[in-house]
Simulated scan of single mutants.
Amino acid sequence: MKTIGVLTGGGDCPGLNAAIRAVVRAGIRKDCETLGIRNGWQGLIDGDVEPLTDFSVSGILPKGGTILGTSRTNPLKEVRDFQKIQQNMKKFGLHAIVVVGGDGTLAAARDVAEKGIPIIGIPKTIDNDIVGTDASIGFDTAVTTVTEAIDRLHTTAESHHRIIVVEVMGRDVGWIAIMAGIAGGADEILIPEVHFTMEEVCKNLMARYEAGKKFSIVVIAEGAHREDIGLPPVPDHIRDECGHEKFVGVGNLLGKEIERRMGVETRVTILGHVQRGGSPTPYDRVLATRFGVAAVQLIQEGKFGTMVALDGYRIRSVPLRDAVSRQKTVDAGFYELAKLVIGGRK
């Protein structure tokens, strides 16, 4: 009997528990025991594990977050940490580790795999920025949540003749903003991949106003370029330990500038972590289930150092090194498509 470890790392998102459940249940069918590793890589370093049975994963399919907990621990930051991982692999008789994570967690998985630890990756991130897979766990739920929020904001914007700015997640890529913006009928969509000017944004919004449309919805990704609004780069003292900007609300800054330039009442809604919480959509539940089952199959086949991926409707595997080689960004063609349908200025 093989023993499989499963861990979830990085930010939480809906669908993680569905993936854990699938690994456990597929493992049982393949005569494998599954150990849950608590709090991401930190649990593998500390040897903090728990047996996962069919009973322990019952009822978790619709539950958001992760029953195993998560962390952003770098397993290779200290030499002794990797040595502890090696020791715990032997101690618990682990034949392979299923790592469910985003680009940071999977980059660590690639590095750990290259040091000889049998790893299978499962992509999860609401940003949908992992190359090699058409979708990641959590993305569909996030887009659905944002779309529903935009639908609700439309009614108050129209009733009060306001401009409403909606800030959504997206540090380096604008997949949530553009997909939810199209689905929700936004009038402007501002993403990190495309530079914009305040003159252009206000011109487009004023054209709607002059055409008799006295309200607008502007969707902006949190990582949209501050300099486009006329603000300086973020100083080091408001960055986190990884050098990432600590976001202070680019939506608020945009809203104030729109109101100042146009003289139209502008309100701002920052959705924040509500985009990552709650129950996964049916799509994410099924995707996570398929990924979990495929991960167990790859273990059976000994195809380590790979990540399960969605290719159209088919599940396949890709090398981890390819999956984290770059970010999957919104391409110019897709953004041009969005521009054809947003705004309604003519």
Rank of each mutant, 00 (worst) to 15 (best):
L68Y: 00
L68V: 04
N74D: 14
N74L: 12
L76D: 08
E78N: 14
E78Q: 15
D81A: 14
Q83H: 11
Q83F: 03
K84G: 01
K84C: 09
I85L: 05
N88P: 03
K91Q: 12
K91D: 00
K91G: 05
F92R: 13
G93T: 12
G93F: 01
H95A: 15
A96S: 15
V98K: 01
G102H: 04
D103V: 15
D103I: 15
G104Q: 13
A107S: 15
A107Q: 13
A107E: 12
A108S: 14
V112M: 10
V112P: 12
E114N: 11
G116A: 10
I120A: 03
I122A: 00
P123G: 07
P123A: 11
P123N: 07
T125E: 06
T125V: 08
T125F: 06
I126V: 12
D127N: 10
I130L: 15
V131G: 07
T133D: 04
G138R: 00
D140T: 03
T141M: 08
T141A: 09
A142L: 07
A142P: 07
A142Q: 09
V143W: 05
V143G: 04
V146E: 06
V146R: 00
T147E: 05
T147Y: 03
E148C: 02
A149D: 05
A149R: 08
I150L: 14
D151E: 13
E158M: 11
E158R: 14
S159I: 03
H160G: 08
H161K: 15
I163T: 12
I164L: 07
V165W: 00
V166T: 11
E167L: 13
E167Q: 12
G170L: 11
I176S: 07
I176E: 11
I178M: 07
M179C: 13
I182F: 02
I182V: 15
A183F: 04
G184E: 02
G185H: 09
G185E: 13
A186D: 07
A186F: 01
E188I: 12
I189F: 04
P192K: 08
E193H: 00
H195K: 01
F196T: 02
F196Y: 12
T197A: 07
E200M: 01
V201G: 02
K203F: 05
N204H: 08
